[in-house]
Design a protein around this nucleic acid. Sequence first.
DNA 1: CGGAATCTTGAAAGTGTTCAAATCAAGTGG
DNA 2: CCACTTGATTTGAACACTTTCAAGATTCCG
Lengths: 190, 190
Amino acid sequence: MYPNFLAHIKKLISLNAEEEELLLSGIKTLNVKKKDFLLKEGQVCKANYFVEQGLIRMYFINEKGIEQVTQFALENWWIADYMSLTTQGSSHFYIQAVENSTIIAIEHHKQEKLLEKIPQLERYFRLMMQRAYAAAQMRVKFFHVHTKEENYRHFISMFPQFVQRIPQYMLASYLGLTPEYLSELRKKQP
Amino acid sequence: MYPNFLAHIKKLISLNAEEEELLLSGIKTLNVKKKDFLLKEGQVCKANYFVEQGLIRMYFINEKGIEQVTQFALENWWIADYMSLTTQGSSHFYIQAVENSTIIAIEHHKQEKLLEKIPQLERYFRLMMQRAYAAAQMRVKFFHVHTKEENYRHFISMFPQFVQRIPQYMLASYLGLTPEYLSELRKKQP
DNA sequence: CGGAATCTTGAAAGTGTTCAAATCAAGTGG
DNA sequence: CCACTTGATTTGAACACTTTCAAGATTCCG
């Protein structure tokens, strides 16, 4: 049960049997179906979500009514609107399953309690946040370097297996271009 | 001494006198002049930097030889290449002072030791990383919503006082447009 | 099978860049 | 404190990249 979740934590910190039980008592497992939502715009982000299995995306809807994908989360990644989670203010994002997925959810107040009782968890989450922020830094660079065409080609060469798990229009949105233009690029050179 | 630094930490966690002394013994104060570097591409990012006073920018040089600013750090913000800092691999970024600045530096291995001896610091840095990541999430959204002109107008209306501290070409670079185009936008409507 | 979602096509219209040159501002040394 | 050199901003024209819109073709899922 939760093979990825516990293994992922234990790779970074050690937990005794009691702590492990405490941790497991504070989480919820969610089996979400493709297109189910973990968060919608206007709601408060209630939990920090770990992708045990599956694929999740985060997006928002811009003023023209078009979905803009801002990030994906694969197995072993955490996802949440951390601004909303931290301040408990209402979110500007949607978080939705791209595939049927198994999610471990830690609600905000439960996470606070767990952090008090298992101080090592602060370290684990610091490392996770640092990893996520480091990835965000690299991503900002990535999107600045090239033209959109170059970004696209670079992306599919870096993550070929991942690209096959998402529809093209989501990839287009994530890369900041229109589905039509992406289609044109593929015609030019698949 | 270090009025911002200690106050910032004590707002989030409590330290006794001994811990405070230990912390101060593990940091270095750097007085850097405008255009001095804290990090250059190819080097390993040796420390986590807190801006006690001043203004710092992070940028990289793209394949055309042009500087691309990816972030600024004002008073009370931490800045580092967290990918390089974490892996101790070589960095793809430059970190440079925009103004004469006072910086608190915690070297990587010193930070690890401090975290062992003062476990509450894990919490402090988790909160800092979470804040930084939350800001990065909002920023990705920001850059997706509008045209570049709208981004520019939105940015200067949000941070009017900050805009006056940086040259236009840095702002242009940060917003992902050319100095020439920014100049055109200003002519149209200052 | 049928309807909805996704992907493709092509033409017209922008948005933003490039390049070269002129102007303006600022820092340094004499 | 001025003269000089370098750095920063502005201009304008030509061009490139990307979007928009409308429609048709294709695929997916119940």
